[in-house]
Write a protein that binds this DNA or RNA. Structure first.
Length: 691
RNA sequence: GCGCCCGUAGCUCAGAGGAUAGAGCGUUUGCCUCCGGAGCAAAAGGUCGCAGGUUCGAAUCCUGCCGGGCGCACCA
């Protein structure tokens, strides 16, 4: 049984006659089709079943019509369609939406308590559009589950300690001590320090990665290597390292960052590499101008990209000799944290507050709220105790000096599935897994939850399954109630975001642009509004649009974030839906009060029936979105509702209509406005009354 | 090597085993004397990656292949 998929009729449709026909005919057809070629037999079968299904449907429809309990019962293409009374049905839907108001669509209260952990930003790092996808998704999920009737706890888990924090603070102390960023910029400033730290510490690897790629993919470069190395030898006399480089590149073997005898080799070699890349690029451009294919197998954009990478690295080639010493300093800095050095802890607290201030500002702006705040720094000790316990109970063991859980082995799995998870560093410092085990235990023991949902990037999929399995091995029954809501990453047209490579779109930058654009449009469309209202509406429209872009795509699909698209408020986007809402408000504003029901929904045109049909679907869609953890369902729903409302709006005058049509249409507008507002609210998107 | 995800219109994406696969952007053409044009109407655009299978019926479920992305021991 399913709704009839035709606009304008309401009822239930059943394909049961197909099943009956198939059963009835199966024996009979076996000998009928005997001896026929397979294809023909199949066609005959299909034909007969269709005929029989139609006959059965006719009979069922005839009998149901005689009883006369429905408006109409018909048989079409073997389906039995039971059609309701239009006026009754419409009144039921419209009056429900009006009388239930902001509760329209709500599910019955459930006893399950669910915790949704999402957002999880790292302090000392930048909040970018990838984090926005997570926040929008998690927040919408919380709102939907709540509306569906669950008892929901929204939890945030701040990454306020870990290697990234240590690196940032090392870089601060080493290179930026005493610098004071402007107050509103402190969070971002820390993020930049982190990027710098990361670039410094990975510098050798980045240089070597580029060399290895060139050796592997650029035959022209490989041909020129001999000459380049001779030049290096002639000018700087670094014999052993030249031999090493030549050997590795000639034989296609990987160059290792720490295999050099002379700290200066790469420093001297780098400009020579640059000259070669520059030469290759110039050559390729010259050939392209003449419309010829160059000798290089790489495309012009690839050559350009490589040259740019070289150039970036060349700007700080003096870092090369220092990298090992910096790495050592970072380990020492980690010890300051482990020893709880008071001065260091004070610095950590201060800088952490800088990031938290920024996060709170962002959450306020986005209208995202949490019931529970967890911090990684709070579960370190608990985590270490758990590792000890797991070791004692034989679930964990020491392998190559590292405490690990060999999950497949413990579960008795032959095929490698969950593999091995380290749960503490060999030097005793904690890992993400150490802290996550402690946190998960706390969720179940202290919050009494029945289900735990993690809204986390799909790349951590294996990792989270490992955590869940360790909880199971440890004896937690709730392990089976853990669920990872995975979502794909946000990429840029130029590729994956990477703070080290310097191509990250920060949330605050894009939000700034979107707000500015939204304000411009309001200024143009509605110049007479008071300024602070314009600003507020710009926020609602701009950020709504940003969120909708994140929610209107399936979670397991990569989003390529395109600034142009984010700044466009036309078509399939939040402003379209908000605009429909504002229009509805405008009509309702013009009547003193909404006439009471029942209304006369007779002689409806298709735009009216389609709108009522969509209105009626809301409660089911909420339930489905909650069952499947899919805000996308609601995103699609509200768009379709707005679309049908716009069709109605253009086809059906409301205020000018004659009674009783006028009252019925007014009620329909009011009901639609309510459903639009409720649907948008579930996505965390505001429904402005004017825009 | 093992595992997960994606492949639908020129582009970005919806699509709950069911009737004629839908939107937006872009292109072309119309619509403000009429509740707000961030809108509406119309045209054009499809071997639903390929090949098998299950089914009365497959974009949807199963198997294999092709193409792309991601993950797999002390990052988070």
């Amino acid at each position: 049984m399913r709704p009839i998929p035709f606009a304008g009729v309401w009822g239930t449709s059943s394909s049961v006659s197909y099943q009956i026909a198939t059963e009835q005919l199966s024996a009979e057809l076996e000998h009928l089709t005997a001896g026929l070629p397979k294809k023909e037999a199949k066609r005959l079968l299909q034909e007969r079943i269709r005929e029989r299904a139609q006959a059965i449907a006719d009979e069922v429809a005839r009998r149901l019509t005689q009883r006369n309990s429905f408006a109409r019962v018909e048989a079409v293409n073997g389906y039995v369609n039971i059609i309701y009374d239009v006026n009754q049905f419409s009144n039921h839907v419209v009056q429900a939406a009006i009388s239930e108001g902001s509760h329209y669509g709500r599910g019955t209260p459930k006893t399950d308590r669910v915790m949704v952990e999402f957002s999880q930003p790292n302090t000392h790092k930048a909040f970018h559009v990838g984090h926005l996808r997570n926040a929008a998704l998690g927040d919408a999920l919380v709102r939907i589950l709540r509306f569906a009737g669950y008892d929901v706890l929204a939890a945030n888990y701040i990454g306020d300690i870990g290697l990234h924090v240590i690196k940032t603070l090392w870089c601060y102390l080493r290179f930026h001590r005493g610098e004071e960023p402007p107050r509103a910029q402190r969070g971002r400033w820390l993020g930049e320090i982190y990027t710098e730290a990361d670039r410094r510490l990975n510098y050798r690897q980045d240089v070597v990665d580029l060399l290895n790629e060139l050796a592997k993919e650029d035959p022209v470069f490989v041909q020129a290597v001999d000459r380049m190395l001779k030049e290096l030898w002639r000018t700087h006399k670094v014999g052993e390292d030249v031999a090493y480089l030549l050997g590795q590149i000639a034989h296609g073997r990987e160059i290792k960052p720490d295999a050099f005898y002379d700290e200066q080799t790469i420093v001297q070699f780098w400009p020579i590499v640059g000259k070669q890349l520059e030469h290759e690029l110039a050559e390729a451009r010259r050939m392209a101008e003449q419309g010829l294919n160059g000798e290089s197998q790489l495309s012009l954009p690839e050559l350009e990209e490589r040259y740019l990478r070289w150039k970036r690295l060349a700007a700080t080639i003096d870092w090369w000799p220092h990298v090992p010493e910096w790495q050592k300093e970072v380990r020492e800095t980690f010890q300051l944290w482990e020893r709880e050095d008071p001065e260091f802890v004070a610095l950590w607290e201060e800088t952490r507050a800088w990031s938290m201030e920024e996060f709170h500002r962002i959450y306020d702006q986005l209208d995202i709220h949490f019931d529970v705040w967890f911090y990684e720094s709070e579960v370190e000790d608990e985590g270490r105790a758990i590792v000890k316990e797991l070791l004692e109970r034989g679930i964990a063991e020491i392998s190559e000096g590292v405490p690990v859980v060999k999950i497949d082995e413990k579960l008795g799995l032959e095929k490698e599935t969950y593999r091995i998870l380290p749960i503490l560093r060999s030097d005793g410092t904690t890992l993400y897994s150490t802290k996550d085990l402690a946190l998960t235990k706390r969720k179940f023991e202290e919050y009494g939850i029945d289900r735990a949902i993690w809204v986390v990037d799909v790349r951590q999929s294996l990792y989270l399954q490992q955590i869940f399995k360790i909880m199971e091995l440890w004896g937690f029954e709730q392990a089976s109630k853990c669920y990872h809501l995975a979502y794909e990453m946000v990429m840029l047209p130029t590729g994956a975001m990477s703070s080290r490579a310097g191509n990250v779109v920060l949330y605050e930058d894009i939000a700034g642009q979107v707000l500015e654009r939204a304000l411009e449009i309001i200024e143009e469309k509605n110049p007479s509004l008071p300024t602070d209202l314009k600003v507020e509406i710009a926020r609602q429209v701009g950020l709504g649009s940003l969120k909708y872009g994140m929610l209107s795509r399936d979670s397991n699909r990569v989003i390529v974030f395109d600034i142009e698209e984010a700044l466009s408020f036309d078509g399939h986007a939040a402003p379209y839906i908000q605009y429909a809402h504002a229009r509805a408000c405008r009509i309702l504003e013009k009547v003193e009060s909404l006439p009471g029901g029942p209304y006369s929904f007779t002689d409806l045109v298709s735009q009216e029936t389609e709108l009522i049909e969509q209105l009626a679907a809301f409660p089911d869609e909420v339930e489905r979105a909650a069952d499947e953890y899919k805000p996308l369902v609601i995103a699609n729903y509200v768009y379709e509702l707005a679309r049908r409302f716009n069709d109605f709006y253009h086809a059906c005058p409301v205020l000018q209509a004659e009674e009783p049509k006028r009252s019925a249409r007014l009620a329909l507008v009011a009901a639609t406005r309510q459903a639009l507002a409720n649907g948008l609210r579930l996505l965390g998107i505001a429904a402005p009354e004017v825009m």
